[in-house]
Nucleic acid binder design. Structure first.
Lengths: 101, 101
DNA sequence: CGTGTAAGGAATTCTGACACG
DNA sequence: CGTGTAAGGAATTCTGACACG
């Protein structure tokens, strides 16, 4: 029950297979990581490992890219609501702090 | 619904990860394949790919090996009932055929 | 029988860079 | 900005064999 290690979230897929499953090139997948859209694990040797959830996210990203969305916009949309809230709050605090200066 | 491509049966795991997940050495995993206990897919280049179902089967095999069972015995036990029946039937037919000779 | 290991090679993946746009 | 590609190297995996038992 409290075992979050479902098949879907286990990071066990290499980039080659991830590429096959998504239809994206390895170059694209690595680029989306660079743009903070996807976060694979790394083996000891440094090779990327993805979960099925990651693969689904990649497909989702691919669809948005096709719709002309930029990585910057996708990153915002992909963020959890909680993350957005905390970032907004932080932004407001920063703004308020600067005004006092 | 009729989509049998569940995460559990997708052959996407390399032998290195399979080894980590099962605690078995790569040597052991390859040997069990040689003994017809496990059937991974192969990439174009020839590297083995396992599914989560395969990983579970490997753990099951490992348990039976610990109990002193031999690969020969495990193979018989792992076979589907249908397979066993067809083999038994074939065996009987062969036996009957030989008797006629 | 089941498994470890060294051996040599092939397939896979990695990073940083240049290119185009 | 997003992606292709050639480059050189490192990590991963493969097979067949010898060893022990």
């Amino acid at each position: 029950m409290a075992d979050a290690s479902s098949y879907k979230d286990k990071k066990v897929i290499g980039i080659g297979i991830a590429s096959e499953l998504t239809g994206l090139s390895e170059r694209q997948i690595r680029y989306y990581e660079e743009r903070k859209l996807i976060f694979p694990d790394r083996s000891k040797g440094g090779t990327r490992k993805y979960s099925f959830a990651d693969v689904e996210r990649l497909v989702d990203i691919a669809n948005k890219m096709e719709d002309g969305m930029q990585t910057f916009e996708i990153r915002k949309e992909e963020m959890k609501q909680s993350d957005i809230r905390s970032k907004m709050l932080r932004g407001q605090l920063n703004a308020a702090f600067k005004m006092r200066k």
